[in-house]
Amino acid sequence: MAEPLLSVRDLIVEFPTRRGTLRAIDRVSFDLKEGEVLGMVGESGAGKSITGAAIIGLIEPPGRIAGGEIWLRGERIDNLPMEKLRRIRGKRIGMVFQDPLTSLNPLYTVADQLIETIRTHLPISEKEARQRAVALLDRVGIPAAARRIDDYPHHFSGGMRQRVVIALALCAEPELVIADEPTTALDVSVQAQIIDVLKEICAERGAAVMLITHDMGVIAETADRVAVLYAGRLAEIGPVRDVIKQAEHPYTAGLMGSIPTLTQTSDRLVQIPGSMPRLNAIPQGCAFNPRCTRVFNRCRVERPDPIDRGDGRQVACWLHDPAEVRNG
């Protein structure tokens, strides 16, 4: 089997506070193959963004990676010194953030920012870097790129700005792009355009994408596989089609049922009672057990680890433990 591009093993991220240590990510493991699009979904506070930040080493102190390993193409990157990490960030891993206004510097033109980034990572002249930047802006769909490159970020609309951010993330030809809620701040009609651009360009350049979003619709249209996070733990991971059509984890099933769609016929939405636990009050056993409709004794005591079902899916639920299945 080919070596995965990115491999996250038993990642633990902790935030020390005055009232004790909060565990925002608790033993999360997953792989990302070359050129693959992996969706990460979950509700707010589930740990989606923290997972992304941990991979590129942007966890804000005092938060820290307290355990586990992150491997990028066979090289361990979670314990690198700052200087080495900086060379990976931007060069090998690109990042697209949610709010395009805060991820661009308002005091520099788009050209300045693109050329600086390109020249930081690639040994080329300023003129070449500029040509490259124009070609890239053109590729992400900015009309009259050669002229608009000298504009400031505030000259662009929200959608256009997010295109610039995508160009910025891709300008050093990264192997992996982490897109954290890239379309959440945009209107639906523009959202579709941005998702298409991101997907096309990454496919064209062979870059893998980790797409972090709370919008299941965006994942359904874009991702190859999807990972569902709940309270900092992986609930389920598998091919997007299987997970959406037939969710195995009760949380995923509830989540899917609670989304109103354009074709549903029933009058009421499925609702999961309660809300996600706070990080300082995660229940014993399975984190989902107080809200789960299929809970049994073992769930309240023992925490289920992801169980590999052999068809590319992993489900962290005791209902799928072969021993439980046998016992009926």
Partner: peptide
């Protein structure tokens, strides 16, 4: 309507909308 992401995976192809 075309711009709404398709959760049903019916393979409905979205028509691209130009502009903002």
């Amino acid at each position: 309507l075309d711009a709404v992401p398709d959760l049903e995976l019916s393979g409905r192809r979205r028509r691209q909308v130009e502009g903002e």
